[in-house]
């Protein structure tokens, strides 16, 4: 939970991949700040759980089952948000998928399309349909990139390519819309303790090795990434545009 209580009362946020992990943390952050939240996820149960948590925290939220790689689904998500809440002020485009481990020569083409479909085409489609609704009164978009958007991870070419692409897309949209009152930025988490990651770490006993890679000496939490998303959406970040903010304990410090 953020230390600062942001005042997003009367505002509306869309968060994709909000059925768990980072997206759930930011959806709850927006809700606690007073925003109405469209909780989008491909997983209906996860989205409903997040909505219940937001409502329990006194917030207003709806679940919107969305596959962000589908144009029809993203348009429906935006239409539903406008239909329920009448506006869009903030968008955290966060939906992602884990990639299989393969060298480039062994990556199935379908795997490439699947990963880039969700994480690059998905972010593009979300911005394409969200930003027009922000132009009248201004808004803020934060895309979830990754340390993998800044450096490479062998065996993860689709994931790394999509996250590098998200940063390029973020910067381009930032320059296009900055003068029109819409700020677009990205966050670059390092390893974050989400339920999915926790399982892998425990099974493979990766925790000591992962901690060793983080100069700060620990692994981050979803809330810590959400705190950065909220700050980037706040007026305190009024001159931050096209930035890829690392929230990684120094993991990829160049």
């Amino acid at each position: 939970m953020s230390q600062v209580t942001y005042d997003f009362a009367g505002k509306v946020a869309i968060v994709t991949g909000a059925g768990g992990g980072i997206g759930r943390a930011s959806a709850l952050g927006f809700a606690r700040a007073g925003a109405s939240v469209a909780v989008a996820d491909v997983n209906a149960d996860g989205a409903e759980e997040t909505v219940a948590l937001a409502e329990a925290a006194g917030g207003r939220a709806i679940a919107v089952v969305t596959d962000v790689s589908s144009s029809d689904a993203v348009r429906a998500m935006v239409d539903r948000t406008i239909g329920e809440f009448g506006r869009i002020d903030y968008a955290h485009n966060n939906a992602g998928v884990a990639g299989e481990q393969n060298d480039v020569g062994d990556v199935p083409e379908a795997e490439w399309d699947r990963v880039l479909g969700v994480m690059l085409r998905g972010v593009f489609l979300c911005m394409k349909y969200e930003i027009p609704h922000m132009l009248a009164e201004g808004g803020s978009v934060v895309n979830t990139a990754s340390g993998a958007g800044l450096v490479a991870y062998p065996g993860q070419s689709p994931y790394v390519s999509s996250k590098h692409g998200v940063i390029g897309l973020t910067k381009t949209a930032a320059l296009e819309y900055g003068a029109r009152g819409v700020r677009v930025n990205a966050v670059c988490p390092g390893t974050v303790l989400t339920p999915m990651v926790e399982t892998v770490i425990e099974e493979m006993d990766l925790e000591p090795a992962l901690i060793a890679l983080h100069p700060i000496g620990r692994i981050g939490t979803a809330d810590e990434v959400a705190n950065a998303v909220l700050w980037l959406c706040s007026d305190d970040a009024s001159f931050v545009l096209g930035h890829a903010l690392s929230v990684d304990g120094g993991y990829v410090v160049p």
């Binding site: 700060i216 001159f239 545009l241 903010l245 690392s246």
Partner: peptide, 17 residues
């Protein structure tokens, strides 16, 4: 602030793009 507890080594651009 504590909200940036996981941010270190960052060069935060305040440059309007």
């Amino acid at each position: 602030s504590d909200d940036a507890a996981m941010i270190t080594g960052a060069a935060l651009m305040l440059d309007g793009g």
